[in-house]
Amino acid sequence: MTATQTPPARAPRRGLPSMTVLGPILALLVLLAIGMFLNENFLSHANITNVLARSAFIGIIAVGMTFVITAGGLDLSVGSMAAFIAGLMILVMNAALPALGIGVPIILLGMATAVAAGLAAGFLNGILITSLGIEAFIVTLGSMGIYRSLVTWLADGGTLSLDFGLRTFYRPVYYDGILGIGWPIIVFAVVVILGEIAMRSAVFGRHCAAIGSNDQVARYSSINVNRVRLMTYVFLGLLVGVATIMYVPRLGSASASTGLLWELEAIAAVIIGGTVLKGGFGRVWGTVIGVLILSLIGNILNLTDLVSPYLNGAIQGAIIILAVILQREGRAGG
């Protein structure tokens, strides 16, 4: 039965790629064309590097978010979590400065703190959602408020700044790289490649999709649903930690306004890229395109004077909705 039904269902996909695949790519190409047309510096090495490097934070987080959403979950706490981890990292590094001095060990200590805090924060979210069975929306809405308050409290309402000498030493992690490609871009690329492999070829990705489309069926297929869900949140927490490691050397500070609205940008990027918000289907490379689209809109609006800056948000919103409409029409037609 199944064997005879499968080929006709797959046949159209082998012809032309459907709009769900083409939509985000087309949107990105259109944006690139507009950018090139409006400003000759748009394709300069410096501008491209800037855009890619600033996309890296949201991008690294959005890769983790792709798995969470694919498995039918959601995480609203990532922006606050990044701010909290950044604050914690700065405090730990400043506190260890007299003992360790400026050097590689203290940077490694800071990185270990970020990774450990990210794993712990992700685990906490995940365990509350899976073991206690509370809605992901509610748990992460709560933890979003908690982390945001904690960083404000740690900073005493002001700004936490990394010791100046330490910052100078740590700075190359954001600004330098290999062969003119910055470290944030390299780390982002590695995370994307690993994520793409995990989503497409590993058992983990298939389990996420199965749970997202129907967790009952997944359970009967002997998938450990709670464990896989928990893993998606832990994985996301880890990536928030990694993103923070790249973020702190940029300005060397954290405050209550760090990472504001990152969660919504990450979720928007995931959805623009073609992952289904209800879960069941995820696409890591699509998420990358979504992140680039969002960054490019801001970049192009800054490079031109076409639109009043008051309307930046409106244009971003319109493009997000357009990108998703394009995909829906493609789905209805194909």
């Binding site: 748009f42 410096a46 501008n47 405050s255 504001l260 490079l303």
Partner: peptide
Amino acid sequence: EHGNWNRDDSFTVMQDFLSK
């Protein structure tokens, strides 16, 4: 351009001013 009294936003805006 609006940097929203925010370090990250103004960093991004300034990078783009420098390109432009």
